[in-house]
C-alpha cells in the first residue's frame, strides 16, 4: 500500500511516470476540484432531464425548442464529465513536474454556455410561453 512500489502500480502512467510527489494537500485539492466539476456536470444533466420531463408533461405535442435545450444541457454535462478526468490528470502532472497549471478552458465553456442557456430559457418563457 505504501512505499515506492506504489509508484509503479499507480495509474495512469502518463501522470505518475514523471516528476516528484507533490504536497499531498495539492493532490487532494485537485481531486476535490475534479469532483466539483463532476457534480456540476451532473447538475447540468439533471436540468436537461428535468425540463424535458416538464415539457412532455405539459405540452402536447412537445415543444421541440425545449427538447433541443434539454439536449444541449445534457451534451454540456457529458462534455464536462468527459474532459474532467483529462484535466485532473493534466493538473496532477503539472503539480508533479512543477510546471504551470493547465488553463481552465471548461470554465469559459460553462460560464458562457450557462449564460446562453439562461437567455434561451428567458426567450422560451416570454416569446413561446412554455
Amino acid at each position: 500500500m505504501a512505499g515506492s512500489s506504489n509508484e509503479t502500480r499507480r495509474w495512469p502512467k502518463r501522470v505518475y511516470g514523471q516528476g516528484d510527489e507533490p504536497d499531498a494537500r495539492f493532490s487532494l485539492a485537485n481531486e476535490r476540484t475534479f469532483l466539483a466539476w463532476l457534480r456540476t456536470a451532473m447538475a447540468l444533466m439533471a436540468a436537461g432531464v428535468g425540463i424535458e420531463t416538464v415539457n412532455a408533461a405539459t405540452s402536447r405535442p412537445q415543444n421541440p425548442l425545449v427538447t433541443w435545450l434539454a439536449l444541449l444541457l445534457l451534451a454540456g454535462g457529458v462534455l464536462i464529465s468527459a474532459t474532467s478526468f483529462t484535466r485532473w490528470a493534466a493538473t496532477e502532472r503539472a503539480l508533479r513536474t512543477g510546471r504551470p497549471l493547465p488553463a481552465p478552458r471548461m470554465g469559459a465553456v460553462l460560464g458562457y454556455g450557462l449564460a446562453a442557456a439562461g437567455v434561451g430559457i428567458a426567450v422560451l418563457l416570454v416569446v413561446v410561453g412554455i
Partner: peptide, 19 residues
C-alpha cells in the same frame, strides 16, 4: 504517495454514461 487515478476515471466514465 496518495491513491491513483483509477477511481476518478471510473466515476467520470459513469457520469458520461448517465448523460
Amino acid at each position: 504517495p496518495l491513491t491513483g487515478g483509477a477511481l476518478p476515471a471510473g466515476v467520470a466514465l459513469l457520469a458520461v454514461l448517465v448523460g
